[in-house]
Amino acid sequence: MDISPTQTGSAPRNAGDARDAPAIPEGHPVGGARETCLLRGLRDLFAARGADGLRAASLALDACVAEHGGPASLPPNASAQHGPAPEHACPPGADPWSEAEYAFNRLFVGPMAVPAPPYASAWLETEPRLMGESTMDVRALYHALGYAVPGEGTTPDDHLSFELDAALALLALRGADHPAAAPAEGGDEPGLAVEDAWRWLVAEHMGAWVPRFVQRALAEPGVPPAIARALALLLCWQEDAAAACARHAAHATDAPATHSRRS
């Protein structure tokens, strides 16, 4: 599930498809590569249509964690190597990834009412309702990047996978001297827009729903380890990114107000 370039309006401005990108700019902090593969794995996992997609995304996350290390707070057994489903939940002979698919659908897809809908607006509107104002907020962000979800108006823009896709795009923009990161008219300093967009998306917007989403999903019985691990990775990433965002802002601002805010 990726955001596709809009046909109208501003060109994608090279903010290309996150799947094939990004060649990490030379000298970019290692955290960038880790964050990229992590976001890509999470995006693909939550966009999975079935067992194969879940398996591929889980293996990609495995590889990412093996190469770059997981967040410190990750539960010790939260790895796909421990199997996609708890043993007791997996009847003998059953394909464990099929069992993971069923569990994934019970949590996030349906057809029954799902405990943890993977849409921002399900958590951010005054009542659970897709296509709300928060959906329009991320739509505006995608449009500003020159992108749109496929089937805009049909597919809610704020599905977790699209938001992770947009985070990947912004991550790449942050690591590059990209025209989109150029100063806004009025002479602000370069990079302002991208940094602000990143901070808004990962800290403010996703920060307002992803932790609740993860906790709600993990509260369900029988979440297969592969999915529990992905949820934990998602939460750790979001929290780390938001914390970095706050540190970043605090560092840049010597206003005393900032310090009191952090305390």
Binding site: G32, G175, A176, A181, E195, D196, H248, A252, T253
Partner: peptide, 11 residues
């Protein structure tokens, strides 16, 4: 320049 902890572009 624009890394997570970089100093650039901060309003």
């Amino acid at each position: 320049k624009t890394g997570p902890n970089g100093p650039g572009g901060i309003p």
